[in-house]
Amino acid sequence: MNTPLTPQSLARRSFLYRKLAGLGARFAAGNEAAIAASFGGADEAAAARNLGLADLSPRRRVGFKGPGAADWLASQGVTVPEINRCAAQADGAMLFRLGANDLMITTDIGATAALPDRLAAAWAALENPPQSPRGFPMPRQEGFCWLVLTGQHAAAAMAKICGVDLRPHRFAAGEIAQTSVARLSAVVARADISDTLAYQLFADSASAEYWWDCILDAMQEFGGRPVGTEALAAVQGAASGRA
């Protein structure tokens, strides 16, 4: 039997790898880092449908900011939504528009979308200085941690740590709220996983461990627990019949 993968054995680590390992996570490799695939226990997918918190920090994401960034992305065939909205792209990648010219592109839950890599390569391959402004790359991979809060109690748990009304009937799928979550400036985007309510959460990576603890604490009274990427994939797959 192979020895289990540890975060320390790979070049990159999640900002939360000590917490995740302490919670008994089983790791899988991806994007040169170990991602928490499962925490074990009975029916993790059911836990994700009830109230689950997953760490996607090692997953690929890129950002572009500054005058011309939105136009440049549109010229790359990317669907650019309104400010404070997110939009799924053709290959499943997600684009989060955080300002007129502040955009972040992430891969999907299953990490199959290659759009972030393609855009980073396309940006770097352009002539320098550029003929027309196209913004500058933002190191979102390093600057933001990326958590996903899922399940029927997600809105109730968020209400304890966030002043914005995120209940599903007030905060539609595809909306973004940039606000304070557990006293930390954060991006909250509603991007449901199939028919399960899900908030994509981004905040300063240096405070990731603090944030993780705060959110888990808020989830406790609803029976929430950490879940791995396999549970998210199961939630996604079950509804679309691919499980």
């Binding site: 404070n84 300002g99 709220a177």
Partner: peptide, 17 residues
């Protein structure tokens, strides 16, 4: 808490400003 309306983000707690 006092609420301020941000032209880009909408109404938010004053502590965010």
């Amino acid at each position: 808490m006092k609420i301020m309306k941000c032209p880009m983000n909408g109404p938010r707690n004053i502590s965010e400003f």
